[in-house]
Structure formats: C-alpha cells, structure tokens
Amino acid sequence: MTHALIRLTGLFVVIFGIALITFALAHFAPGDKAQAIAHARYPDAMGIPPQILIDIRAEFRLDDPFHLHFLNWFGQVLRGDFGVSYSSGERVWAIFLGSLGETVTLTITSLVFGLTGAFILASLAARYPGSIIDRAAVVIASVGAAMPGFWLALLLILAFAVHLQWLPAYGTGTAAHLVLPALTLALWVMASQTRLLRSFFLDARAQPFMETLRLRGHSESELFYRHTLRHAMAPALTMIGLDFASLMEGAIIIELTFARSGIGSLFAASVLSRDLPLVMFLVMFFAVIYVLINTSVELVQRLSDPRMSEGNGP
C-alpha cells in the first residue's frame, strides 16, 4: 500500500516534470511564437500583416514572462482545459478524442495478432531448440526487427492492394481498411516479441527446478504451461508493456503511410503546422501513457510475483 502511494506520488511528480519540460521546449523554441500561431492559422500565407501578429500576441499573452505563462497554462491543464488548436480553432481535447478511437483500434488489433504470433512461434522455438522452427523464428525476428515499418507498409500495399487487389491501399472506415496497417504493426510486434519470448522461455527451461520437476515425472506440456510460462511471464510483461507504448508511437508512421486519421497522423500534422497546443497535449499524452504503462506493469508484476511484494526478491 505504501509502495503504491509512493509510486502514485512519483507519478504526479513525473507528470509535472513532463508538463514543465514540454512547455519550456515550446516556449523557448527558436522563432516568433506569434508567427508560428499565424502560420498554423493561415498555412501558406507567408506574409502575415503586422496587425495580425499584434492581435495574436495580445490574444495569447505572448509577452508575459515564462513563469506566468507556464502557471497560467498548467492551471488550465489541471482544470482539463488544454486550449484550442491554432489550425482549426477547435478544442484540443475534442480533436484528440475524435482521433483516439482509430489509434486504439489499430494498436490493440496489432498487439493481439502480433503477440499471438510471437507466442506461438517462441513457444515452438523454445520447445524444439536448434530445430528448423527455432531457426525460422530467429530469422523472422531478425528480418522483422531490421525492416523499417514504412518500407514493410509499402511492400504490403504493393502486394495486397496493387497486385492482388484484395485490400484498399489507404484510408479508414471498414475492417478491410484495418488489415494492412494492423498487419504491418503486428509483424513488428511479432518480430520483437518472438526474440524476447524465446529467450525468456529458454531461460525458464534452463532453471534447476525444471530438471527436478522433470525427474519427478511431470510431462513436458505440464512443465511448459505450469512453470515455464509462469516463470517467463514477469520479464515478458515488462517488454509487452513497453511494446504497447512503442506501438502508440509506431502508429505515427503507419497512420501517415496509410492515410489514417488517428493520434499518430494528428501528431505529425500538428508538428508540421506548429500547432503548439496540440503538440504539447500529445507529447504529454505519450509521456503519461509511457509512465502509466510502466507503473501498471510494475504493479501487475508485484501482484503476480509474491517475492517482489514481500521485499525478498532476487
């Protein structure tokens, strides 16, 4: 309980730190903020009349000192007000919620399929070390890790949309639109998790207690499902958690490539148009997601591994 409270306090400190750093980066970034806002509002209008810039400075109180500016912004953030987008004039929160569904659908679908594939491949590889299956798993993991996501995406579009014409090349709306982007991200998850799960399984199988259990007459299936899996789950959970957070970031490239309108493409568009309220919100969102997932993984680990909660773990 005390540990959870400490973690929770730490969580707030980290989030405050993230907010401060994010705001400071945006505040001290080179260039005139009023120009940045004007450009987000009027993309391609290179010559902004000076009066517009004066109005923008007054509207956003850009001449205020840093601490006042930050406190004003952070106060609004605590009240759940992240401001309005410079580009569209809509509330940042509403824009974010409008895009969240597509990214969550893509991320979870990819994670489920990627993990299923990785689990099957890694368990077969660990069960038959040195076999063709094991070598195939290593090859798949290495190739998958080496191939950039956008490249794989283009290959998949070329194969399934251009040549076979089974699936749409881009866009959202139907389940068919989800297949190629989810497959791209799932292959990435599968590649990274196969390598890790395989080593966790092999490590668990090499534990001395496994030999004892084997001598006691436990079957290989029983050993795998009751002991190997359980032993490997603790480190695997950490990596899966981190992968989930990375997937949210990986979605940026994939959503842009497949012209999907999720959080990823929103992030890219807001950075390119220097839409600072959106950029700051999304940077904070990704950072908070990372921190929350890490904290959750740690809590789950403590719950699943009695040694950690008793404080006498390795």
Binding site: A153, L154, I157, A161, V162, P168, A169, Y170, T257, A259
Partner: peptide
C-alpha cells in the same frame, strides 16, 4: 478528395485503382 500525405502511397493507390 482523400488526404494521402505520403506521395508514394498515393501513387500506389492510383495503381490499385483506389
């Protein structure tokens, strides 16, 4: 008008007939 930010994907979408 469909937004496809990546010009290479737009070219592939044209080939695919999308």
């Amino acid at each position: 008008f469909d937004t496809i930010p990546d010009a290479s994907v737009a070219a592939l979408a044209l080939q695919a007939g999308d």
